[in-house]
Write a protein that binds this DNA or RNA. Structure first.
Length: 352
DNA sequence: TAAGCGTGGGG
DNA sequence: TCCCCAAGCTT
């Protein structure tokens, strides 16, 4: 069999094994739905996205609805999904599309790629799936599947490795079903050609697979290991006044940007964190009532919450929220955990 | 180019 | 428990 016969076999497999997903229901596909789903799916599991996608479309049915919504509402809808710059960029891009493209996603590569949050992968995904254009959508699945299929030993986390895989995909993609081709490779990567211990016995492409032939299915693709996290102590203050707690809005850039949090300081050690919090709030720290270890991709927060008696509110954006109120604003993930615990404690009429 | 940016599932 | 990782983009 010739090496380039595999796309036909792949598409035949896809016709029988295609996953049913909320954003795949329409024919032709709604470009806005493709767009939102692709952004949500970045670095995020399909199962997690399903619920978020459906709630999103109820809240923001069209690009116009999204563009007109306040940022707080957009971030709240994204709360818990992670990588919040995706939500802010989606919101920004919706406004760009309304202002510059009459509310319709542009179909031209350069214009589409100039929108906030839309990079090379997402351009390929939208153009191929929504508009039938012959362009690969090179995501982690394609990198992994094609590196095995062609026996690519290059590091796929680097620019050169991505170039190599992209060239192979461009050569293989069929002009009549480009969107199906991309989705088929993603489905295969998600269910069969999975990262660890691929299910080669269920794979339709073993006859074409170089890694299978050479016994390298467990060792390909080659990826550079990730850097270890920094570990920090996070001291949080619970400051209550007439049933409301003091919150701070995080800066518009950086980690958990524009999300609300309990007053918090980060330091290398717990004692230093506690004393810095005391300094920030200009008050004494009461007992530590809650502890939690929160692991991010690049940081670990060892959190401790202290009851604080009173506060002189420092500069920046601060507000007082009751439990009912804080359920309507976007909370930073680790603080949402603390807020849940606090609400339960208050509901039981326990003193904090 | 490499680092920064979240979260939850599964081995 | 620990570690890897899932449909990337931006700076």
């Amino acid at each position: 069999m010739k090496r380039n016969d595999w796309p036909e076999t792949l598409l035949a497999w896809f016709d029988g094994s295609r996953r049913a997903l909320p954003w795949r229901e329409e024919h032709p596909r709604n470009p806005y739905h493709v767009w939102v789903s692709e952004i949500m799916l970045q670095q995020t599991r399909t199962e997690t996205v399903k619920g978020y996608f459906q709630r999103w479309m109820e809240q923001f049915p069209t690009i116009r609805d999204l563009a007109q919504a306040p940022e707080e509402q957009v971030l709240r809808a994204w709360q818990g999904l992670g990588y919040y710059s995706r939500a802010r960029n989606l919101h920004k891009a919706a406004r760009q599309v309304m202002a510059e493209w009459g509310g319709q996603l542009p179909r031209e590569r350069k214009a589409l790629g100039s929108l906030a949050g839309i990079g090379a992968y997402t351009v390929g995904a939208i153009l191929s799936m929504a508009f039938g254009e012959k362009i690969p959508a090179v995501d982690g699945n394609l990198l992994r599947v094609l590196s095995r299929l062609y026996g690519v030993e290059e590091d796929i986390s680097g620019t050169q490795g991505k170039k190599t895989i992209t060239a192979l995909a461009e050569e293989a993609i069929p002009g009549d079903r480009p969107g199906d081709f991309n989705e088929a490779l993603m489905d295969l990567g998600a269910e069969v050609c999975i990262p660890r211990h691929p299910r080669c016995e269920a794979c339709p492409l073993t006859a074409f697979c170089q890694a299978w032939k050479e016994g390298k299915t467990e060792t390909l693709p080659v990826k550079k290991p990730k850097a270890p996290q920094k570990e920090l102590a996070a001291a949080c203050g619970l400051v209550v006044r007439e049933g409301r707690y003091l919150f701070h809005k995080r800066p518009a850039k950086g980690m958990l940007a524009s999300m609300w949090e309990f007053p918090m300081v980060l330091e290398p050690g717990a004692e230093k964190a506690r004393s810095s919090l005391v300094k920030l709030l200009e008050t004494e720290a009461g007992p530590a009532v809650w502890q939690h270890r929160h692991v991010f991709t690049h940081q670990i927060w060892n959190m401790t919450a202290y009851v604080m008696e009173r506060a002189e509110v420092p500069g920046g954006e601060w507000s007082w929220f009751s439990p009912e109120e804080w359920e309507k604003v976007p909370l930073a993930g680790p603080h949402a955990k603390l807020a849940d615990w606090l609400k339960k404690t208050v509901d039981r009429n326990e003193k904090v």
